[in-house]
């Protein structure tokens, strides 16, 4: 008996050891680009080389790239500020819209409800970039391109966000309707139920929605570059960094890109890590309910 047990133990120990080895390899692969990015950002631009090289540990560490990025030579700080403004506004406004839509679709039964949901589902099957030119002209009529690209971007991102109600509605559906009914019998209006009961109970989903909405603008290259076209001061970080990497002189901007990218990644990553719990809840919930 003891023999069997010890052999089982050994088997399990070997299994665990292999798992650890595998996990370590996975983690190294996953972290490698980030380590490379950070190391690249410290490579000396002046005394070493600012382009792509075949090694990742710089021969000489320096803050050249950060000095360049944060100095007055480019509008980097402006781009950074633009992105923060866009992300914050989109995050707040989009969450408000999504909450409104989700509550209406989850709790109220009105004429045309399912038709509206099906219609939005069909709309979602059109690729987003299809409408780019038309949106550009619409915004141009409102004076929200080039110099006014920042409010224009916010407007476009927020305006269509009502269609992304799925995860939030799924969450509202899990809050028992009996609670609403009880409050309504006591004379509370729908609006009151929404503001004083449903919203305070929905903290996780509100944080999830805000987080996702906040992170998206940092990646927004396509539309941002289109409506800010040629107007340097209206770029966001994604547009400007992409341009650094894809212009003729990208070899000269490689390490500078690394430095700029590290500065972008730090706050977003910290925020995400801090709120990870809510993100996981949202992703898992959203996956099951589809």
């Amino acid at each position: 008996m003891a023999k069997i047990k010890s052999s089982m133990k050994r088997k399990r120990a070997i299994g665990n050891f292999l798992t650890y080895v595998l996990l370590t390899i996975i983690v190294i692969i996953w972290l490698f680009p980030f380590v490379g990015l950070v190391l690249g950002s410290f490579r000396s631009y002046i005394s070493e080389y600012g382009g792509i090289v075949g090694y990742i540990i710089p021969k000489k560490f320096s803050l050249d790239n950060y000095r360049f990025v944060l100095g007055g030579e480019t509008n980097y700080l402006r781009w950074y500020l633009n992105t923060i403004i866009i992300a914050t506004c989109v995050s707040v406004l989009q969450t408000i819209i999504v909450l409104c839509v989700s509550y209406a679709l989850s709790r109220m039964r009105f004429y045309g409800r399912t038709a509206l949901m099906k219609f939005w589902l069909v709309l979602g099957m059109f690729p987003g970039f299809l409408t780019m030119i038309c949106l550009y002209f619409l915004l141009k009529q409102l004076g929200l391109t080039q110099a006014g690209a920042i409010p224009g971007l916010i407007l476009v991102s927020v305006a269509s966000s009502g269609m992304g109600y799925y995860v939030c509605k799924g969450y509202f559906d899990t809050i028992p309707k009996a609670l609403d009914e009880a409050a309504r019998i006591d004379g509370a209006s729908r609006a009151r139920v929404f503001f004083t009961m449903t919203l305070p109970m929905s903290k996780p989903i509100i944080i999830y929605t805000m987080l996702v909405a906040f992170m998206a603008p940092w990646n927004d290259y396509v539309f941002a570059s289109y409506i800010a076209f040629g107007h340097d001061k209206s770029y966001n970080v994604a547009v400007s960094m992409y341009r650094w990497m894809n212009t003729g002189d990208y070899q000269g901007y490689y390490t500078r890109f690394c430095a700029g990218a590290v500065l972008v990644a730090i706050p977003v990553t910290l925020l995400f890590m801090f709120l990870q719990k809510y993100y996981v809840e949202g992703v898992t919930g959203g996956a099951v309910k589809g």
Partner: peptide
């Protein structure tokens, strides 16, 4: 990889 903006990680 989820936390770091994709344009950073993918470009790199």
């Amino acid at each position: 990889t989820i936390a770091i903006p994709q344009f950073v990680s993918l470009l790199y």
